[in-house]
Every structure is written in C-alpha cells, then in structure tokens.
Amino acid sequence: MQNNFQKTGFQANWIAFKTIIRKEVVRFFRIWTQAFLPPVITQTLYFVIFGSFIGSQLSEINGISYMSFIVPGLIMMSVISSSFANVVSSFFSSKFQRFVEELLVSPTPNWVIIAGYVGGGALRGIIVGTIVFIVSVFFTRPTIYNIWLILFFVILTAILFSLGGLINAIFAKKFDDTMIFPTFILTPLTYLGGVFYSIDRLPEFWQKISKLNPILYMVDGFRYGFYGFSDVNIWYSVLILCGFTFVLTIYCHYLLQKGFGMKN
C-alpha cells in the first residue's frame, strides 16, 4: 500500500532531521542582519568598554589580563542568547503562522522535531560564538588549555538553551511571551554568571548565592577550557550541564507528545 517514494524508518527520520536543519539554516541566513550583526556589535562594545577602557585599569585575574578573562564569558553570552532566540522565534512563528501543522500531520517523530529545532538553534549559537571569538582575537590573545572541554561546554550549552527556547515557544501564546524569559530571567542570570568577574572575589554570602546560578557553571567550565582555572570544580560543571540538558530534553518530548499548546 505504501509507496517507495517516501522512505521509512531511520532513513525517513534522517531526511526529516536534515530538512528541519536546512529550513532553520536558510531562515537564519535570510535574517543574517538580525541573527549575526547585533551580537557581534554588542560583544565588540563589551571588548572595547570593559576590556580596553576599564579592563586596562584592573589587576590581572589568576595571572591573565581582564580582557582575556572576559573573552570566554562574552562568547558564552552570545551562544546562550543566540541559541535561545533562534528556537523561540522560529518555533513560535511556526505556531503563530500555523505551519507547525506541516510537521504535526507528518510522520516525523517528536524526538526528530526536537533534534531538528535544537540542532538549528545550537548551530546558530555556535556560529555566533565563533564570530565573537574571532573578534576577540583583535583585542587579546586567548590561550587554549583544553579544546575538547571548550567544544563540550559550547556545544552542550547551545543545546541546553535551544531546548529552553523550544519550551518557551511551546508555552508562548503571543509574541510578548517569547520575551519574558530572556528579559527577566536569562539576561540577569547571564550577567550574574561570572562573565565579568571571578566569584572568588565576592563575599562568601554572594559566592554561595552565585553557585545557585546554573549559568555560572557553564561560563566557568568554558573558561577552564581556555585557561585551565575555574571557580568551581570542573566536574560539577560537567554534571550540571549534562543533568539540565537531559531533564529539558525529556520535558520537551513530554510537551510535544501531549501536543501542549498545539493540539486542541
């Protein structure tokens, strides 16, 4: 009864995955002035103001200049906001314009939908992160202590915040709802996540409060990959990142399975 035109099983899922990724890549290159320029301009301003103007008056942190210290944090900031923004805007638009129905009527399993959208978001985050890294080279010479840890933290963080963007998009009922989480939660947590300072220099009480912020572990682990020092145990960071990614993946799958915000 079924035609050979449509592939089945793993082959079909692989084609569907590639299709979503392609669609996402075409989308963010179509809007490249929104996708790539703003984060690069913002981070360049951070390098100029915090790194050159203010940073030149500050003492070294663990033997490296302030400018070099903030590079990993600023890259991570861009990765987090770009990954999140890509998925939340793309998936919410597909809900708003109802072309998410193209996916819902298709045999594409929910885990492939998650993989496709998260893959697209992570890809944009990593591209933006790479551009910011290239820009940073014009201001300082960041060293690389462990490339595998750098890749691990940047990829998993991009995946984690793409998952966050997907959950936000699933719950969002109007465009304003897509801005609440990034504005009121994500941005403050990122700024307080040790991007601009080492928590070692905070009073003990604020050190404890800072350790409740999951973004601290991502920034800190990523920075460890560059310079080989960290404020918290690197394995805690690995564990926390893996744990959050696992929990959000399961939660995303549950929401799609239930058809939350899309069916009924």
Binding site: F5, Q6, K7, T8, I15, T19, Q97, R98, P107, T108
Partner: peptide
C-alpha cells in the same frame, strides 16, 4: 486556512513538506 511560511519560496515550502514525509530533496 493558509498554513505555510509566507517568507519561504514556493519550491522550498513543497520540498520541506516532502522532507517531513521522508522524501529526499
């Protein structure tokens, strides 16, 4: 009701949809 991305090209709308059904590009 119309439920496709109005920003996409006609050919992309069709090929993307087919891709969701496991049809090679």
């Amino acid at each position: 009701e119309f439920n496709f991305s109005v920003f996409e090209k006609v050919i992309d709308i069709l090929c993307t949809y087919a891709g969701y059904f496991g049809v090679e590009r």
